[in-house]
């Protein structure tokens, strides 16, 4: 297998703040990788560098053959292949649910109207929200909005899907439905998934690999089973015991 995402000696600063330290990381096509760590550890920042929402200051980052750090790279092109699901959904407030899903395929992929709508309806069915198509985002619950956001990303048929704490802003009873959609994608597609989350059960059940970050550094990068059975670092052990109790 070949790596679809390749970080080499990457550093990122916010002014004086050193947000990412010497990141070296390779992720293979089709892998499902979960990023965990305490807040402020840089996991969301790392995720956001992958589709160029954050720029890196040092090292190289190659995604699907494109050098993200180079100004020559067409980020628009890259982003059609790398979808992202946000903590706060970021659905288009001024568009209906159906339009949210169909907009980018129409504008960017120039998908034919009938085909576009057919795919959108299929995706709505997949996230179990077919009846919500004509509504606006504000009329949906958080969990429903997040499932629509996932469908919106899937509509672009991306190679990589990034999830930035997709369940953190949800009420507890909404979390399950979103996770089950994500589990479905992980199991039934060859998409590469990177998930920043605090849901340890989900990580254990779905991830091929777990990456543990702290203070902008990758502390551990292990097989899921190995990581949860024998976390090597003191930081990881402490972190795991804290999330379990919470």
């Amino acid at each position: 297998m070949s790596a679809i995402i390749k970080f080499k000696d990457v550093d990122k600063y916010y002014g004086d703040f050193h947000a990412l330290h010497d990141i070296n990381l390779e992720i293979d096509a089709g892998e499902t990788v979960v990023l965990i760590g305490p807040s402020g550890s840089g996991k969301s920042t790392l995720l956001r560098t992958i589709n160029g929402l954050e720029t890196i200051q040092k090292g190289s980052l190659v995604v699907d053959g494109a050098d993200v750090s180079s100004s020559q790279t067409n980020l628009n092109q890259l982003r059609t292949d790398v979808g992202m699901v946000f903590q706060h959904f970021n659905l288009y407030n001024n568009k209906t649910i159906l339009e949210n899903i169909m907009l980018a395929p129409r504008l960017v992929l120039k998908r034919k109207p009938e085909e576009n709508e057919k795919i959108a309806q299929q995706l709505l069915k997949r996230v179990d929200l077919s009846d919500q198509a004509p509504k606006y985002p504000a009329q949906l619950s958080g969990g429903q909005q997040q499932r629509i956001a996932i469908a919106r990303s899937l509509a672009m048929d991306p190679k990589v899907l990034l999830f930035d704490e997709p369940t953190s802003a949800l009420d507890p009873e909404m979390v399950g439905s979103v996770l089950s959609v994500m589990r479905d994608i992980a199991k039934n597609s060859d998409m590469t998934m990177l998930v920043v989350t605090h849901e340890m059960e989900f990580a254990q059940a779905v991830a091929d690999r777990v990456i543990f970050m702290a203070d902008g550094r990758i502390m551990e990068d292990e097989h899921t089973d190995t990581f949860f059975a024998h976390p090597k670092s003191e930081r990881a052990r402490k972190f795991l015991s804290q999330v379990e109790h919470h």
Partner: peptide
Amino acid sequence: GQMEGARSNGLTYTQAMTH
């Protein structure tokens, strides 16, 4: 988040702005 969502969805700056 509206701009970020649209850009991540593959829209260009101009498309994200106008739509």
